[in-house]
Amino acid sequence: MNFFKYLSDPLINENPVMVQILGLCSALAVSRSMEPALIMAMSVIAVLVFSNVVISLLRSVIPRSIRLILEVIIIASAVIVVDELIKTFAVEVSEYLSVFVGLIITNCIILGRAEAFALGHGPLDSFADALGNGLGYAFVILIVSAARELLGAGSLFNVNLLPLLEDGGWYRPNQLMLYAPSAFFLIGFLIWGVRSMHIFQVNKSTHRLPRHL
């Protein structure tokens, strides 16, 4: 019962990127096309699940005084393994992702979930929470990268869908989508959409007048 709640909540209602404002850097920076975004999402899910479950298993053993540094070391070790795997089996993507795989260590989703959830829950619930948050992150990064690749290059996963002008088609790629600012605009509009659907999520502190009443 709780398992499915922990799994499904972070997908939209408690989405780590759009609602908890965690893990933004990589969501913005590696969303230019879908292939690296998918690999990035898979890496984050792998590291998140591993660290959440391990930290949950160790939660009664870890001394409070060195809690943070142990969590960071566990996360960093998982990231090294993932980084080596990507370097081995997806060389080109690893060059594109460059420093951003390493920066999974400082992806606030991972340390955030470890601190806020894994330290207080059992391994099974922590697994569900990690998977849910990972999928919530994947959901955002894949939507943003799909929009950027389709509008910026007329393709998805490097497969051309909109025939380009330079190849005799009709679509003129939007160059802006290849640059960083487009990611901000897209996530901004995505947040607008999601929050309009769930108006109650609008940040209480900035919500001065209940104008929808």
Partner: peptide, 18 residues
């Protein structure tokens, strides 16, 4: 607008800054 207030707007403004 309601859903845009706060975080959404912050993103769009950062976009223009970038």
């Amino acid at each position: 607008p309601g859903g845009m207030d706060g975080l959404g707007l912050a993103f769009v403004v950062t976009g223009f800054l970038a």
